[in-house]
């Protein structure tokens, strides 16, 4: 047993759930480019589906812009409609 390892009866709650914020308002991003795949990948999960607002933390106005951009990217085969590999 490592000397400095302290055993707790109950697991201490380490990380506080970090406060979600709408990155578009915070960084003043006004346009979601459907060609910018790396940025759009932040808003889709492994299956390529759109993340809901409660997970992505976007406000309604920008969530719709992201949704519109992702659908355009899917239409132009920049993003897959459905995939199972970890993107």
């Amino acid at each position: 047993m490592a000397k400095n390892e302290i055993k707790y009866l109950t697991a201490i709650k380490q990380e506080k759930p970090k406060k979600k914020f709408c990155r578009f308002k915070k960084y003043g991003i006004k346009y979601v480019d459907y060609k910018d795949i790396e940025f759009l990948k932040k808003f889709i999960n492994e299956q390529g589906k759109l993340l809901p607002r409660r997970l992505s933390g976007n406000s309604l106005k920008y969530q719709r812009k992201v949704q519109d951009a992702v659908k355009k990217a899917r239409q132009m085969a920049l993003l897959p409609y459905v995939t199972d590999l970890l993107k």
Partner: peptide
């Protein structure tokens, strides 16, 4: 696709390489 004024400004800035800084902002966001 139709470009609104933010999109036109975005493309303009992107063409002139103005996004080096902002990309980092997006990355760490």
């Amino acid at each position: 696709t139709r470009l609104d004024k933010y999109a036109v400004e975005y493309n303009h800035v992107k063409r002139n390489g103005g996004f080096a800084m902002q990309d980092k902002e997006k990355q760490e966001a």
